[in-house]
């Protein structure tokens, strides 16, 4: 489970100050595929970066499982990112001079895993994303969709407990984007890994179990999109919306009845 508790983050100072998080409270249970939406500047990516330990929150706490990320030392954070959290970026962030398999092996190499095991695990990860046949190709020889698959394999190779993805389809055409969407959905279904995905695309968000909308650094809407047969009977099959107030800080949890 990942839990954000009263998370605040402000960038810049004076007139250039931007509040990216103004008290975000959010809990994502184990195995959930949760989409984060919201207008530009609403704090979506900041939330993801705080979860990944790439950015420190000014106030509040973030915990993954029982551990408080906000209290970790730099060394502990690095280890957590390397062993427990897989990150997928919009622009793939692959090394162009390494082939697909070598790119996927990278997190294991940093963790001093032996060659055979590295090879083995990278092969499995590439198989999972349907790209084993491209194992020896380098990123410049691949399409955008293929590069993103390699990046997803790289995130999965450590068998993470959490996958964070920042606009994973943002740099792809709609056909490739759709393939990446179904791939992430299938991986979540088959492995049960918790996923937090930032997106501005409602079609992609509609594949999630739940969609959280941020506005001005606060959770403004929280909608569950589970299939009808697993929707809580109390919401009668309609989408459940938990509302929290806007800038005025009012909070009222409701479910549409």
């Amino acid at each position: 489970m990942i839990r954000f508790k009263n998370v605040h983050k402000t960038f810049g100072a004076g007139d250039n100050q931007v509040c990216a998080a103004q008290g975000i409270d959010l809990e994502i249970p184990v195995g959930q595929l949760c989409g984060i939406m919201g207008p530009s500047g609403s704090g979506k990516s900041t939330l993801l970066h705080i979860a990944a330990g790439l950015v420190d929150a000014d106030q509040g706490s973030v915990s993954i499982g029982a551990r408080d990320v906000s209290r970790m030392t730099a060394e502990e954070l690095t280890l957590m990112r390397r062993r427990e959290v897989g990150v997928v970026f919009q622009f793939f962030n692959l090394l162009p001079y390494l082939d697909a398999r070598e790119n996927v092996e990278l997190p294991l190499l940093l963790d001093a895993i032996n060659t055979d095991e590295r090879r083995n695990r990278a092969t499995k990860a590439l198989e999972m994303v349907g790209l084993l046949h491209r194992a020896t190709h380098r990123p410049p020889q691949m399409s955008g969709g293929e590069m993103q698959r390699v990046a997803i394999a790289r995130a999965l190779v450590i068998s993470p407990r959490l996958v964070l993805a920042d606009e994973p389809t943002g740099n792809l055409d709609s056909a490739a984007g759709r393939q990446i969407i179904s791939l992430l959905r299938d991986i979540n279904d088959s492995t049960g890994v918790t996923m937090l995905v930032v997106t501005h695309d409602p079609v992609w968000a509609a594949n999630c179990d739940r969609v959280v909308r941020l506005v001005d650094g606060l959770v403004s809407e929280d909608t569950y999109l589970k299939p009808r047969d697993s929707v809580d009977s109390e919401t009668n099959g309609r989408p459940a919306v938990a509302e929290t107030g806007g800038k005025n800080g009012r909070k009222a949890a409701t479910a549409l009845q």
Partner: peptide, 16 residues
Amino acid sequence: REQRAIYMSRLARVAR
């Protein structure tokens, strides 16, 4: 917000 949740659940049905 209520209407957006309804539209999102429509999209989720299409996705399924």
